[in-house]
Amino acid sequence: MSVVFYLLAGLTVAGGLAAVLLKNTVHCALALTVAFAGLALLFLSLDAQFAGFAQILVYIGAVAILVVFAILLTRGSETPKDGVYSRHWISGLVIAAGVFAVFGWAVLQSLGGLPVRTGPAPTVTVLDIGNALMGRYVLPLEIVALLLTAALIGAVIVAMHEKEGAK
């Protein structure tokens, strides 16, 4: 495990932690962006260049912006009276810890059985991806296209101001 990996992992985790711990929601959104960036770099380190760049483009370029917009649009009061954490935050924490424990245990448990291919990195070109998309994965592609259309329309309808008469 190289140093790069630890650095990138630390960055990502820190970003994630900040995203859920900070009080100011905008700061959370920004920390999220950092986490996204860390993840993109991790992808790059895993020789999944296309995925990394797609991550940057989509997540950082669109989702993060979207989150920020949403935060800005839903500002009623800056900080709620009872604090930013829910009343039973302990149980949430415990459950999350339990989840991590279980996953970690699963991973560590199957250390020996994991088939690790320590060969050279695969060379993946955009052509290959394009071929795959249009060939083998054409159906998922179309479905995702449909999904995106539906999501687009749905989001618009959901977020649209209601007609005056229907109030």
């Binding site: 932690l17 859920v20 930013v84």
Partner: peptide, 24 residues
């Protein structure tokens, strides 16, 4: 990262932060 995201989704009051957790 998954656990952190889950913790966030489970413990924060703000709905947007739950979505952030889900993204994570």
């Amino acid at each position: 990262l998954f656990a952190i995201g889950l913790a966030g989704a489970l413990t924060r009051r703000n709905a947007i932060l739950v979505l952030i957790g889900i993204e994570l």
